[in-house]
Design a protein around this nucleic acid. Structure first.
Lengths: 192, 192
DNA sequence: GTAAAAACTTGATTTAGATCAAGAGTTTTA
DNA sequence: TAAAACTCTTGATCTAAATCAAGTTTTTAC
């Protein structure tokens, strides 16, 4: 559990013993069963959340009741709704577990305190944000330029392992297509 | 020119006289004529760029020669290719001026130096990045959930003034539809 | 261990938006 | 200020992917 986050910190940044302990002192360990919610639409998100084990999805539900998957997050990634966190407005998103999942949570207040106290931690957080932004830009670019088939191949290539772990329906939704279309694409590409 | 950036800084952050002067000492003023490139595909992007006047677009060109607009940036916004800046790899993007444009540039080395020297400046930069990330997430969400018409109405609502300033072809491309489709949508919505 | 519920596949049909084409405005440039 | 080069509009046609529908396989839960 926590040791996975500890290892992540060691890889990403240089901390003194005291700083590491300070961070750990604020950590909240949370476990989710498959299908359990981490965040429900309408609630305000108040944490910074790191996944040590498992997989969650972030999605919205439209007025027709269809789900639209915004993102998947697995171990060694962060999750949450940054907009709700920043604005303290109710979230439009749901986050739930696709598998049994373990997380390390920090209340945002404590997290900000750590950022202020520990410059190396703050730098790490900013570097993650940079990368998240770049990934989001690339996803926008892909959605504008690629066909359904290209989107799927691009996804499999970029996130190997996801395709076998996450139900096709959810991947289809993430890619902005129907499950039927994805099923047909998979059949076709398997031939080649 | 620079005074517009100065005013922006004053609104977004609290700086001492000395800090303001330090920032200004690194500023490079750049002017672009309409259609002039700020960045061309294949070049490495090396700046942090703030627009004081005008409008630029960031876009890619696919193998069929079609342009895909990734973003528009106007006065009081930042522009550039963060991925190329971070990785120092050739950019996939072109950035050019839609109108005559004036910018304040900082080489990324100087910019990082300012971030290290001036905590308030660093905080401002991180806050901008947060907002950019949230905007990117919302755009992804819109592209997954909205129809062509809804995308256009959402765009007009979110960025009033852009529609009158930017050629429709480019807006259509930004929204991921053809100019013909956008023309028909505008005709229909004008009726209502 | 089996019934119920999800998840996936496959086919037939529909549709939103793309493509092709041609004319009317509008800007640019020389 | 005229011609060239864009930009926008409108109509006809096409197509990628959606929708509808029904059957099969896999997973979940008692």
């Amino acid at each position: 559990m926590y040791d996975i986050f500890q290892k992540y910190l060691e890889e990403k940044t240089e901390l003194t013993q005291a700083e590491s302990e300070r961070i750990q002192s604020f950590a909240i360990i949370k476990k989710l069963r498959k299908r359990q919610y981490l965040l429900q639409e309408g609630d305000v998100w108040k944490y910074d959340a790191f996944i040590t084990q498992g997989c969650v999805r972030t999605y919205t539900v439209d007025d027709k009741g269809s789900e639209h998957v915004n993102s998947f997050s697995i171990e060694n990634w962060w999750t949450g709704d940054r907009e709700s966190l920043m604005t303290q407005q109710p979230s439009r998103f749901n986050i739930d577990a696709i598998e049994d999942t373990e997380l390390v949570l920090f209340t945002h207040e404590n997290f900000e305190l750590l950022c202020r106290e520990i410059p190396a931690f703050n730098n790490m957080v900013n570097a993650i944000l940079q990368r998240s932004f770049i990934a989001a830009q690339n996803r926008i670019q892909a959605s504008l330029t690629l066909t359904a088939e290209e989107k799927y191949l691009n996804f499999v290539n970029k996130y190997p392992g996801f395709a076998s772990r996450i139900p096709q329906t959810m991947i289809a939704s993430y890619l902005g297509m129907t499950p039927e279309t994805l099923s047909r694409i998979r059949k076709q590409t398997a031939k080649k």
